[in-house]
């Protein structure tokens, strides 16, 4: 995880396109400028970054389901609960499932667990847009390779 670059996800553990589910891992760094302000003497992951992590896990799921033909963009956070803090150095396991695939949009439900215990969950809505340009498509392909996205799902 590189917080400053919004690289929230480290590794795809399991992507089941047919079942429309994904499991990913994200190791929270022990040190980051983010933690210098949030908070001095008591560093913890900001709630918005937990939501972003769940959005990115959902995003990889949608990229797989859509065979990399559309780019999911977060449009709405329907519900988000931070049930417990996540601290530097902790390994987050994120699960996401596709709850509805509409025309040009999709909805997911996502969870974050640490050590098997639920720390956060959310219901998210995405718009599904054509990749706006080749640069973004290429960048997302590289990101997918970095996190171990199954190659067969990357190819259109």
């Amino acid at each position: 995880m590189q917080l400053e670059y919004f690289h929230m996800i480290d590794r795809i553990v399991d992507l089941k396109v047919d079942e429309k589910t994904i499991v990913v891992e994200a190791l929270v760094p022990k040190e980051s400028t983010v933690f210098e302000g949030h908070f001095p003497g008591y560093p913890l992951m900001p709630g918005v970054l937990l939501i972003e992590s769940m959005a990115q896990a959902s995003g990889f799921l949608l990229l797989g389901v859509l065979k990399f033909e559309r780019m999911p963009i977060l449009a709405a956070v329907k519900e988000a609960k931070v049930r417990g803090s996540v601290f530097p150095g902790e390994l987050m396991t994120l699960e996401a499932s596709l709850s509805h695939e509409g025309s040009g949009y999709a909805m997911t439900e996502a969870k974050i667990r640490v050590g098997g215990k639920l720390r956060a969950n959310s219901a998210l809505t995405f718009t599904l847009i054509p990749f706006p340009n080749a640069d973004m498509r290429g960048y997302m392909t590289k990101v997918a390779e970095r996190v171990g996205f199954p190659q067969q799902a990357v190819s259109p």
Partner: peptide
């Protein structure tokens, strides 16, 4: 309207072709 489309999709068992 996405929320409305979602509710309509669910209630009627269809997929409104919003993109089209």
């Amino acid at each position: 309207f996405l929320d409305i489309a979602f509710a309509i999709d669910k209630q009627f068992g269809i997929k409104l072709p919003l993109e089209k």
